[in-house]
């Protein structure tokens, strides 16, 4: 069976964040609000809403490498999380054809008290690999980390750099059609960075679509062919990367 081509399509994607302040999370405050009887109607259960993305339209097809730029808080990570399926739109829709891998937080699912092998297994399971697939890749992943005998030791005994190596190797062992990244990942010492870079490039090549949020314009020029600028949750049209300067000037 031939899989349909890899695509991402967002139509009028709007995402609102209810902000439950520390106050709102307390039941007492919540009940008090009901009994006092003033503010309940103001918004849903007394929380304020922030519009994180509004009316975002995106159409990407296989081969597209999209860079996301924008100030802090402009909605880049929110858009990535929406694309990963974690946040559901309030309005509009997201449709993705292809397997998604979100490399947003490398430390996801890392248990410091477990050893390296167990962490690779756990991470693989979360990423949707079967136990058999993980065991098949174990050797390759273990070799790539370069941690050797340390893999049998608890991760909490690792240095920060070693932990990053493990997390990186485990996270990038997935096969995906859509790769979501929040900043280009650079971990480890100089040698490892070179290896990591190569591995990531291979992953990007295999993936049909890359969405990369970054502040590093040179990086984006290097890897992306399209770019979208987010400002206060509003997205610019998808622009060719060669027109990046015009987009920034606008």
């Amino acid at each position: 069976m031939k899989a349909p081509p890899v695509t991402i399509s967002c139509r009028d994607l709007t995402l609102r964040f209810p902000v439950y302040g520390v106050d709102a999370k307390s039941l007492k405050k919540h009940l008090a609000r009901v009994t006092v009887g003033g503010r309940l109607g103001s918004s849903m259960a007394g929380s304020t809403e922030v519009t994180a993305l509004s009316q975002v339209n995106l159409e990407l097809k296989a081969g597209d490498r999209l860079g996301l730029i924008g100030h802090n808080g402009s909605g880049k990570t929110t858009l990535l999380r929406a694309l990963s399926g974690a946040y559901e739109p309030d309005e509009g829709q997201i449709e993705i054809q292809g397997r998604i891998a979100a490399l947003l937080d490398l430390s996801l699912g890392i248990d410091p008290s477990a050893n390296g092998y167990d962490n690779i297994r756990l991470r693989g399971r979360i990423a949707g690999l079967s136990s058999r697939e993980i065991e098949e890749r174990m050797e390759e992943i273990g070799e790539f980390t370069g941690l050797g005998p340390f893999l049998a030791m608890p991760v909490k005994t690792y240095s920060a750099g070693m932990q990053a190596r493990l997390a990186f190797a485990a996270a990038t062992s997935v096969e995906a059609d859509v790769l979501l990244m929040d900043e280009w990942i650079a971990v480890g010492d100089a040698d490892f960075q070179k290896l990591a870079h190569k591995r990531l490039l291979k992953l990007v090549e295999r993936a049909g679509i890359l969405v990369l949020a970054s502040h590093d314009l040179d990086l984006l020029r290097l890897y992306c062919n399209k770019v979208v600028r987010l400002e206060g949750g509003v997205a610019s049209p998808v622009t060719d990367i060669r027109k990046l300067d015009e987009l920034l000037a606008a």
Binding site: T14, R99, I126
Partner: peptide, 13 residues
């Protein structure tokens, strides 16, 4: 991460 090859997320309906 999704193992399924198709994901559709829509607004409130």
């Amino acid at each position: 991460m999704e193992t399924a090859t198709h994901m559709l997320r829509t607004g409130r309906r």
